[in-house]
Amino acid sequence: MPTYNKLVRDRIPQIIHANGNRFNTRVLEEAEYKEELQLKLKEELQEYLEAREDSHAVEELADILELIHSLVEVHHSTPEELEAVRREKREVRGGFDDRVYLIDVED
């Protein structure tokens, strides 16, 4: 029996059961949950960085976005509030659309 000891998506136990397999799970306390979300974010980011095809990269970005939505709730906020902060920062400081690469700044 493989051991995973990691945070998984909510429906994974149902999928495992539907495949006729047995499993053990537990519900994480809030501090553990935050820590496991952060670990999962690192894992998904690494998978994104290693993606060689656009379709795989987009799939990993979707996983990252799902984790961000969960993390924003852990930080007592909402995806809508996060989006408002993102829009405000973009309005004040810009986005990354122009591909500007800063080399140096003279004092």
Rank of each mutant, 00 (worst) to 15 (best):
Q38N: 11
D10K: 15
N5C: 06
A51N: 11
Y33W: 01
P79V: 02
Y101V: 10
M1D: 08
Y101K: 13
E47K: 09
K34V: 07
T3N: 12
R52I: 04
R26I: 06
T3R: 10
E35T: 09
R52V: 06
R9G: 00
L49Q: 15
D63E: 07
K40S: 04
L37E: 00
V27Y: 01
Y101A: 13
R22T: 15
R87E: 15
Y101M: 12
K6C: 09
K6V: 03
L37K: 07
I12A: 02
T25I: 15
A84C: 04
E35V: 06
V58K: 08
L39C: 11
N24Q: 14
K42T: 08
E53Q: 13
E50V: 05
E81Q: 11
I103K: 07
N19I: 10
R93H: 13
E66H: 01
R87K: 15
D107C: 10
Q46T: 09
E50R: 05
D10N: 14
L102S: 07
E83R: 07
V72G: 02
L37S: 01
L49N: 11
E73I: 05
V74L: 05
V105P: 00
I64V: 12
L45H: 06
R99P: 02
L39R: 08
R86C: 02
E66L: 04
D10G: 13
R11K: 15
E91S: 09
H69M: 06
P13H: 06
K6A: 05
A62Q: 12
H76L: 08
P2D: 08
R87P: 05
L49S: 09
R11S: 14
S77E: 03
Y4H: 14
H76E: 15
V105C: 05
E66C: 02
V100Y: 13
L65V: 10
V8W: 04
D10P: 04
E35P: 04
L39W: 09
F23G: 10
V58S: 09
K40L: 10
H75D: 14
P2M: 07
H56C: 09
V85P: 00
M1I: 05
L45V: 11
L71S: 05
A31M: 06
Q38C: 02
L82G: 12
E32D: 03
E36A: 12
S55R: 12
L37D: 01
T25R: 06
L41K: 02
Y101T: 11
A18W: 04
G94M: 04
E44R: 02
N21A: 14
L39M: 14
V8R: 10
N24T: 14
N21D: 14
G94W: 05
K34Y: 09
E81F: 06
H76F: 08
L65Y: 12
R52Q: 15
L41H: 01
N5A: 12
L28D: 12
R52C: 03
G20H: 05
V72C: 06
Y33H: 06
V27A: 03
R99F: 01
R87V: 08
I68F: 02
L41G: 01
E32H: 11
S55G: 01
E88S: 10
V85F: 13
E50P: 02
R90M: 14
R90G: 11
L61Q: 12
E88F: 11
K34R: 08
D10F: 08
G20N: 11
D54P: 02
E106C: 06
V85H: 03
E80G: 11
R90L: 08
E36P: 04
P13T: 03
Y48C: 06
V105H: 03
E35A: 15
N24H: 10
E59S: 12
